[in-house]
Design a protein around this nucleic acid. Structure first.
Lengths: 293, 293
DNA sequence: CCCTTTCTGTGCGTCAATCCACGTTTCTCG
DNA sequence: CGAGAAACGTGGATTGACGCACAGAAAGGG
């Protein structure tokens, strides 16, 4: 079935009964309508209309086509209505992705967002591998580290969490507090397992603390946090996280170069939709007081 | 919803996942596919696909469109199958029309035709008004009188029934048999109510018998036949009809100028279809021995 | 690590689909 | 009965859509 437009033209001819009437509705010249009908009949090998001076009347085949095309027309009209609305209303799925470590931060916000927009189904995808926005795997990603600059991605600054060096009271009781940076070589640290990690505070750690002093290593932020809390060593935590743990001792105050910047990333094709805009607005409102600066 | 072809190309893009693949299937250049998708998105005001180097992936709106278009594609395929078959197989409705008087002649033939082609539904429309082939009201018409020469109508000679003048035995018992044409003025006749009737034997009657002698007039051939049979007067009957009535006396033998010619008429648009061809062949076979000549 | 393949995207020239105008037929109304 | 309107149908002009070619980018393979 080669050409759907010809079906549409024939449908209007069957509805109107005249070529001229169909041409008016379709907004084309009546010669075009005649050619469409002729082409369609030639392809099907069947006469769809009987031609006479008062217009065209559909044969059985033409009436059959008319019924099918009418159903199609209604389906397409409904589709257009749905699709146009879909760009303006906040409903359906919202897929958000981030690395594992941000789950404690995001979960309450996503929950609140779902409560605010009950038509939304929130899917929060986390994992070690980065879900890729450009393949449509997610609407919004929360990325950490340096500002991503992939083309076709819209990047907005989210929060800059202030990060400090902390240790548990139990660790301080046993090993004391380092007096200066030179003293760090005598202490135990909690750090990332991969030396190539680009997080700013881990870069700083690699530069200022011998690798052999990083005795607890993990790839999971949550595991490191629990390790610090359990007294395994000195490590980086956000000020907010540290405050939520009892008996946490600040070894070094937050520094600007340690800031853990988070970025809201969305694909340019979806960024303008009302759904994504509503989410970005909502999450920035929620995070207003998380900022360090 | 302006352009159905654009929906079709977008559907293939959603199916294939790539512009190139869709272009291959559709048999057009991939640039055309891109233009169609762009135009459709612009009209709907919604992004249907996310573009990336590996291809296009459908957004929610695109998936919605894909579902609707798939249903449409299936509908159209089925339609094409039905419609193509409709031209080749003998099924559906066969609408035959004629004047009232031919019903006794046609009914057995139509019944036999329906028995021969069980998928056919026969509709036999009779009435004073002529059903018009050019408006698609009937597939085949049986017309009487002079050869019709309307454009777009295919006319075939059907049968020439021999017509004679007859009277019932009861009439002959009371009024005798006219000795010559000059004697007709002393007899009673059965004729058509309208003097303008073009049937050749009625034209002859108007010319040779005073109007006041036509004492039984009707517009219905069947009524006239029954009137003659009941002894109301002398009237025209086909030889076959006269033979089927008991006690019928031939007043004058059949003449060529009285021949009631019947014509098979079909519209040129439908004449080539297998259904009409099958009917014409069948009815001519049946009527082989009806002919007078 | 580079080469190949695949796919998107765009500027440009060409061709076909479209529009336009006129002729013909039929129906209607005065 | 005759003029006018409305509709189909066709040949010629034109514009918009299509195909082509090339560039850029990303994934896969040796």
């Amino acid at each position: 079935m080669g050409n759907w437009d010809e079906v549409r033209t024939a449908y209007q001819v069957a509805r109107m009964g005249t070529v001229s009437g169909a041409a008016d509705i379709l907004g084309v010249h009546h010669a075009t309508v005649i050619r469409h009908v002729d082409a369609l009949e030639a392809r099907l090998g069947v006469k769809l209309f009987q031609r006479h001076a008062r217009g065209y009347t559909a044969t059985e085949a033409g009436e059959d086509l008319c019924r099918v095309a009418q159903a199609t027309d209604e389906q397409f009209s409904q589709l257009a209505g749905r699709v146009k609305g879909k760009g303006e209303e906040v409903s359906g799925e919202l897929v958000v992705t981030s690395l594992n470590g941000l789950a404690p931060l995001m979960s309450p916000t996503l929950s609140a967002f779902q409560e605010r927009y009950p038509d939304i189904t929130v899917r929060y995808l986390t994992g070690e591998r980065l879900f890729r926005l450009e393949y449509g795997e997610a609407h919004v990603a929360i990325r950490a580290g340096a500002a991503p600059d992939q083309p076709d991605n819209v990047v907005q600054k989210f929060v800059s969490q202030s990060v400090g060096l902390y240790a548990a009271q139990s660790y301080v009781d046993r090993h004391g507090i380092p007096a200066s940076e030179a003293d760090y070589a005598q202490h135990r640290f909690v750090g990332h397992d991969l030396e190539t990690n680009r997080a700013p505070f881990f870069v700083w750690l690699n530069a200022h603390v011998p690798r052999e002093n990083v005795l607890f290593r993990s790839t999971d932020n949550r595991a490191m946090e629990l390790a610090i809390s359990a007294g395994a060593g000195i490590g980086f935590m956000t000020v907010k996280d540290a405050e939520s743990h009892p008996d946490m001792v600040q070894i070094a105050p937050p520094r600007p170069e340690w800031y853990a910047s988070l970025w809201l990333v969305s694909h340019v094709d979806l960024h303008r939709t009302a759904k994504v805009q509503a989410f970005l607005k909502f999450v920035k409102e929620q995070a207003k007081d998380w900022n360090a600066a």
